[in-house]
Amino acid sequence: TFTSIVTTNPDFGGFEFYVEAGQQFDDSAYEEAYGVSVPSAVVEEMNAKAAQLKDGEWLNVSHE
């Protein structure tokens, strides 16, 4: 299960995956970082959410 939350205070020191406002979700980078295949429906969902981000916001993507 993939989830996401919007934050204005990303923790770059941890093992977190963020999408910056104005960027798209990079499923290849996510797969490389976590060894998890990302279904195309999830990629579309995360890109739709990322498109709604305002300046200074980040989308924190995770999975269980």
Rank of each mutant, 00 (worst) to 15 (best):
G22I: 01
Q23G: 14
N9D: 11
V19M: 06
Q52K: 09
N47Q: 07
K49I: 15
D26N: 14
E20S: 13
E16V: 08
A50N: 02
D55C: 11
G14A: 11
L59R: 00
S37A: 12
K49F: 12
F15V: 12
Y34G: 01
E64A: 13
D55H: 13
S37D: 06
G13C: 15
A33Q: 15
E64T: 15
V61W: 00
V42T: 08
A21L: 05
A29R: 10
G22W: 05
Q24V: 12
K54Q: 10
Q52R: 05
W58P: 02
Q24G: 09
T7R: 00
S37M: 11
V38Y: 00
W58N: 01
Y30W: 07
K54S: 09
A21I: 05
D26E: 05
D27P: 15
V19L: 06
Y18K: 03
S62R: 15
K54N: 10
Q23L: 08
Q52G: 10
E32G: 08
Y34A: 03
G35I: 02
Q24Y: 12
N60F: 14
G35N: 08
D26I: 08
G13V: 07
A21S: 09
A29K: 12
W58V: 03
D26S: 08
E20C: 08
E32L: 14
M46D: 05
N47E: 05
P10H: 06
G35A: 06
V38K: 01
P39V: 03
V61T: 02
N47T: 11
G14R: 09
D55F: 12
A21H: 10
E20I: 06
P39H: 02
V19E: 01
T7Y: 03
P10S: 02
Q24P: 10
N47M: 06
S28G: 10
E32N: 10
Q52S: 12
E57A: 02
F25G: 02
W58Y: 10
G13H: 11
E44M: 10
G14L: 10
M46V: 09
F15W: 10
E20Q: 14
S4N: 02
T3F: 14
V43H: 04
Y30L: 02
V36M: 08
P39T: 04
E64D: 11
S28E: 12
V36D: 03
S62P: 05
V42F: 07
A29M: 09
V6M: 05
D26L: 05
N9S: 12
F25V: 01
V19R: 00
V61I: 13
H63V: 07
E44I: 11
H63I: 06
A50H: 02
N60E: 09
G22D: 02
E16S: 14
S4H: 07
L53W: 03
I5Y: 15
V6W: 01
L53N: 04
T3D: 05
Y18Q: 07
T3P: 02
G14F: 06
A41P: 07
H63T: 04
K49V: 11
E57I: 01
G56Y: 04
G13R: 10
E31G: 08
G13N: 14
Q24D: 08
A29V: 08
G14D: 07
S62H: 12
K49D: 07
W58I: 02
V38A: 05
D27I: 15
A51W: 05
I5K: 12
S40R: 12
L59S: 00
N47P: 04
E16C: 15
L59T: 02
D26Y: 05
S28L: 14
S4R: 00
E20G: 15
G13Y: 09
G56M: 04
D11A: 10
V36Y: 07
E64V: 15
Q23S: 13
E44C: 10
G35K: 07
F12M: 08
D27K: 15
E16L: 15
P39Y: 00
F12I: 07
E64Y: 13
F2Y: 11
S4F: 10
G22S: 05
L59F: 00
S37Q: 12
Y30E: 00
G14K: 11
F2D: 00
A21G: 05
F2P: 01
G22F: 06
V43N: 05
E57F: 05
T1G: 12
E20H: 09
V19P: 01
D27A: 15
V38C: 05
Q23M: 11
N60Q: 15
V6I: 12
G22Q: 05
M46Q: 03
E32M: 14
Q23E: 09
T8W: 07
E45W: 11
Q24L: 14
P10F: 02
D11V: 12
A48F: 13
G22V: 00
Q23W: 07
N9G: 06
D11H: 12
